[in-house]
Amino acid sequence: MRTAPEVLLLLVVLTDFAVLGTTRLSTCIRAVAVQGLLLGLLPLAFAQHVSLHAGALAVGTVALKALILPSFLFWAIREAAVRREVEPVVGYIASLLLGAVALALAFAIAARLPLPESQQELLVPVSLATVMIGFIVLTSRRKALTQVVGYLLLENGIYLFGLTRTESVPFLLELGVLLDVFVGVFIMGIVVFHINREFDSIDSAHLAELTD
């Protein structure tokens, strides 16, 4: 094993696949929580020396992505009394295969991107794959809650892409992004809750039936 970041990035991809392959909502959320933890550890693994910047970013990310957001999603499951199954529009096997295609595409595209030399060549393909798998989850799952999970995956992918330039991206900007995500998921949680109250389910297909 060459470096710790490599292991962390591989585990990130495995959590992506766990989200795609699982039948259970709770496993889905747990996988995203684990991914948040891995993302939090990544800046520490990258930093040659422990800096305040990397440390604060790690603490903020872990607190938000591994603790606050997942517990919020679990709260939403409990409050909205959601059925525990994921209910995909595209089947589990098809989504796993789509995920594998996305992964292959991500590696193929990342090899051709004219990016400046990075310290970790796995970072770009993994971030692209996570973004694409986030899109797959976002579009192929029925429940509003799993769409929030897809949105989180999408954001995690963008965060990973940002890590390629940690030294040049100001700390405040990253905190701002984290805050945006937090507010976004919070609002989505409330919306999910209201959809559930209004329609007795959080099946987003019902939203297509809205009329005056």
């Binding site: 591989l10 991809v13 495995l14 696949f17 392959g21 039948t23 589990y92 096997i93 796993l96 295969l97 995920g99 594998a100 992964l103 292959a104 590696f107 090899a111 060549e121 393909p125």
Partner: peptide, 23 residues
């Protein structure tokens, strides 16, 4: 009905390994 899902998951792991090695 869930067994094929597990096996496709195993195949996805192997495919991931193939992609890593092709890189």
């Amino acid at each position: 009905t869930r067994v094929p899902q597990l096996l496709v998951g195993a195949a996805a792991l192997a495919l991931f390994a193939v992609i890593l090695l092709l890189r």
